[in-house]
Design a protein around this nucleic acid. Structure first.
Length: 109
DNA sequence: TGATTGACCAACT
DNA sequence: CAGTTGGCCAATC
């Protein structure tokens, strides 16, 4: 079966460990198409319709900003989810972003 | 069926 | 230094 781009995205995002975060760009880069970061966002949008649980709240933009927070059903849902895993979020941005950053390129190699 | 958009990123002007 | 455009794939209008 031909793994579509965003099917691969789901695979990666599902492997993101709790308490860790990654970026759209990192995932796209891991898949070999850094320019397709937009598609990662698209995949997240459809993630809830995928039938599987995708920890999309662990996926942020390259600035560590909760860009898609409003897509979780509320402006504070994503923030609460992250804080629930021990990740502090301040002003829609993750504090110690580098410390919690999970790079599929390094972790999955 | 063609055109537009979309939770982004990087390069160019 | 800041604003604009290009690029990628898939879904919606």
């Amino acid at each position: 079966m031909e793994t579509s781009f965003f099917e691969k995205v789901y695979s990666v995002v599902k492997q993101v460990p709790p308490g860790r975060i990654t970026t759209y760009g990192a995932i796209a880069k891991y898949l070999g198409t850094a320019r397709s970061a937009r598609m990662v966002g698209w995949a997240m949008n459809q993630s809830h319709a995928s039938g599987e649980f995708i920890p999309a709240h662990r996926v942020l933009n390259r600035n560590g900003v909760l860009t898609g927070k409003h897509h979780f059903g509320g402006p504070n849902v994503m923030k609460q989810l992250l804080e629930n895993e021990g990740i502090k979020v301040d002003n829609d941005r993750v504090t110690d972003f580098d410390r919690h950053f999970w790079d599929p390129l390094k972790e999955l190699s």
